[in-house]
Design a protein around this nucleic acid. Sequence first.
DNA 1: TGCACGATGAAC
DNA 2: TTCATCGTGCAC
Length: 184
Amino acid sequence: MMKKLSREFYDRDTITVARELLGKHLIRVTHGASRIARIVEVEAYLGPHDLAAHSARGLTNRTLVMNGPPGYAYVYMIYGMYYCLNVVTESEGHACAVLLRALEPVKNVTGRTRGPGLLCRAMDIDRRHNGHDLLSEDFYIASSGINEKLSIVKRPRIGVNYAGRWAKRLLRFYIRGNSFVSKP
DNA sequence: TGCACGATGAAC
DNA sequence: TTCATCGTGCAC
């Protein structure tokens, strides 16, 4: 009953996409095996005017993918040792994205998935996947087909205290009560 | 060409 | 609170 999310799903308001990504499944196929994990925590980055977003510094080599069309993965290295996975949202040129912060293992997932750096390690996602199409066969997000009603918690984003008033915005969303959330 | 620092995670 | 570790952006 897994249904791959369409380009149109990502080509919408970033906060809407962020909230609707909760409960969806991230699927990563390596060597013929499918790793599946449920998205339980995300953060929205609203583009150049959002001082916490990488795209706030304008169009650079790094933000090329983020500024591109929706439904692609924006993967970057942080602190020299971890990768973070983002999903590009809204139409080309808006430079918006949703950061995946925590996953709940569903199938074939070993290692911890609590936190953006750890989830990339567990799902075997790295620099190679920057710009990767999320409508591909080896790396995509799908709906479980079950239309469950989730209780969503809103909190300030993590690690963006430098962003002034933008640091206070409630742009982190997670599934209430889920034990895999990185910072409840 | 150099340098300060970060959308992290773990140890102390 | 400190540290590991390196790509990026911006100052010289």
